[in-house]
Write a protein that binds this DNA or RNA. Structure first.
Lengths: 174, 174
DNA sequence: ATAGTTGCAAACTTTTTGCAGTGCC
DNA sequence: GGCACTGCAAAAAGTTTGCAACTAT
């Protein structure tokens, strides 16, 4: 069994929970993917793999996997949650292309360090963080330079703001 | 009229839209607050202020204000969008207390610089970004050191993970 | 045998949309 | 007077929950 499988079983045992066919299937499926799946994606992949789990079960299991530290949940601004395996993976952050939706990972220990510093100086005890840079990937820049309208995607409040105010890249979230 | 008011009117005129009583009221109300309001908060505040606007109108107006660059929308992980005036304010990021919900702002030009650098090196054209540090504010740390259960709050996938995995502050987003 | 689990459907929450009536310019 | 705007109610979308029927242990 995979490291993650063992880890999950241990997690379950610790809480008096059980390893079921569905849980096993969900775990294997998401581990076998190259990241960033939604509950919906998962349900479908399971079906295709000959397995099956109700959406409610998928959600319940994903929540456990996140709690157990096997997955990380991401909100890239489209209103749907994406899940990504984090066991045996370096921590990283994401750039989200508002043109095509492509996700690019990046690592910056220097940024992490500065975050800790900020937390310290505000007497804040950090637990997790989330850093996302929204913009256009190289391909989309090339393809739409003349000024094509942005595709609807992220945005807690709809599409990406048409007019980007002045100043540095302003933190306009999800 | 406030700077923001003029700015908004200009924005509307540019698009052939109109300044209405509701729009004016919503703008004034959110500008008059000290940040981080939800559509719901706003609707209630308006009512208390003797004004009134249907929730649909509130949402429609907020979307315009964001698009016009007067507001920024934030998702602090609770499934609700918070709005904050950004005119005449420095860009800043947020720390979100998962104990009490308190939001602390912080600024770090150094981090912004590093973000730009990352974008550049990935040939990504940044438009906006969102950086949130989740953790406990000083008060909550003091109050709950022994291990009080975290309050339900953020989390795209429910409450804050009970067991925080190892490693550096792992980016476990909204 | 005993709890924990699952599937299904109903419930929820926040935000969006359709439409008929209203009010800026 | 035209066309944009508002309110209301219905619709969406994603996720959660209640419950009776299963099933690991």
């Amino acid at each position: 069994m995979s490291r993650a499988g063992a880890e999950f079983e241990a997690f379950l045992r610790r809480r008096g929970l059980r390893m079921t066919r569905q849980r096993r299937a969900i775990l294997e499926e998401i581990l076998g993917s190259r990241s960033h799946l939604t509950a919906d994606h998962l349900e479908e992949r399971l079906r295709r793999a000959g397995e099956r789990a109700a959406k409610a079960t998928v959600y319940r299991t994903l929540a456990m996997l996140v709690e157990g530290g096997l997955l990380e949940a991401h909100d890239f601004g489209g209103g749907t949650t994406y899940y990504e395996p984090i066991l045996d993976r370096d921590h990283h952050d994401h750039m989200v292309c508002i043109g095509c939706g492509r996700i690019t990972e990046f690592r910056s220990p220097a940024i992490e360090e500065l975050q800790d510093e900020q937390a310290r100086s505000h007497r804040f005890t950090p637990v997790t963080h989330s850093l996302k840079i929204f913009g256009y990937c190289a391909r989309c820049v090339r393809r739409r330079s003349p000024g094509t309208p942005p595709r609807r995607l992220p945005g807690p409040a709809g599409p990406v703001p048409a007019s980007q105010p002045s100043g540095p890249i302003r933190g306009r979230p999800r």
